[in-house]
Amino acid sequence: MIEIQSSDTILDLKSGRLIGSHLKRTTTTIGDLRNYFKDRTALNRMDPDQAVYWVEMEENKQKEGEEGGLFFGISHLCCGTVGDEFFMTKGHVHNKFDTAEYYWGIKGTGLLLLDNLKGSSRLIEVKPGAVLYIPGRTAHRLINIGNEELAVGAVWQTISGHNYGRGAQLFHNRVTKVGNSYQVTEA
């Protein structure tokens, strides 16, 4: 007879948070995003230690760069703006350019900005239940355009790697708040 085991990690669908003993959390602050937002005056008035987003991941035995595995995590993007520009993640492209990734909306309202390496851009709405495919060779960034935390799940290959160093230069557009809506402008 096979023994039934409980999962080590649970996704709380109400809060969008992971529950478990093998989790790690990385927080990105206003200070970490100093070179990403356009309005330097507004940025300098903000607390550099203010959290913009945090990522929780299930720790596993595989390391980044190893073949044959998957990573799983949830990004939690706070609502807010720097000047009129919505809070966003740094965004990245994968070191192994051809690897793809899946995102899915858990909580909140946002946008997924996709810029391929040939220079074309597109935005995809992120909301609870939306499943979003990110092809290889595509820089991707989350933007919270809502009034609550945006929680988005992700799965990517352990060989993918992340290149954040070029993130600010990879994106050709900015998303800014206009009244109760948003507009997209060239970076």
Rank of each mutant, 00 (worst) to 15 (best):
61 K>T: 11
99 T>L: 15
140 H>M: 07
170 L>V: 05
12 D>P: 09
49 D>W: 00
170 L>Y: 14
167 G>L: 02
76 H>A: 10
13 L>Q: 07
179 G>Q: 03
90 K>F: 10
42 A>M: 04
130 A>H: 01
174 R>W: 01
83 G>S: 09
51 A>C: 06
20 G>F: 14
137 R>I: 00
114 L>A: 06
123 L>E: 02
113 L>E: 10
24 K>W: 03
125 E>K: 15
167 G>S: 12
37 F>S: 06
30 I>L: 03
71 F>V: 05
167 G>Y: 03
37 F>N: 04
87 F>Q: 10
35 N>S: 08
5 Q>K: 15
21 S>I: 07
5 Q>G: 14
106 I>R: 06
110 G>L: 09
29 T>I: 00
153 G>A: 14
143 I>L: 06
160 S>T: 06
61 K>F: 12
160 S>G: 15
10 I>Q: 14
37 F>I: 08
32 D>Q: 01
78 C>N: 13
76 H>P: 10
62 Q>G: 07
24 K>N: 08
183 Q>T: 10
65 G>S: 03
6 S>C: 05
146 G>Q: 09
84 D>Y: 12
160 S>E: 05
110 G>W: 13
123 L>G: 01
159 I>R: 12
50 Q>D: 02
29 T>M: 02
44 N>E: 15
144 N>V: 11
70 L>Q: 14
131 V>D: 00
138 T>C: 13
5 Q>T: 13
177 K>Y: 03
58 E>H: 12
184 V>Q: 02
131 V>T: 00
111 L>S: 08
165 G>R: 04
122 R>L: 07
156 W>T: 06
108 G>C: 03
97 F>L: 14
145 I>N: 11
121 S>T: 11
173 N>E: 01
99 T>S: 14
19 I>V: 14
53 Y>P: 00
184 V>N: 01
180 N>P: 03
27 T>Q: 01
121 S>G: 07
29 T>N: 00
68 G>I: 10
98 D>T: 09
67 E>N: 12
179 G>N: 15
174 R>M: 04
30 I>D: 00
153 G>E: 07
88 M>C: 13
99 T>H: 10
159 I>F: 10
88 M>G: 06
146 G>W: 08
71 F>C: 06
59 E>P: 01
65 G>M: 15
129 G>W: 00
186 E>T: 13
20 G>A: 11
90 K>M: 14
135 P>I: 05
105 G>R: 03
50 Q>K: 15
177 K>L: 02
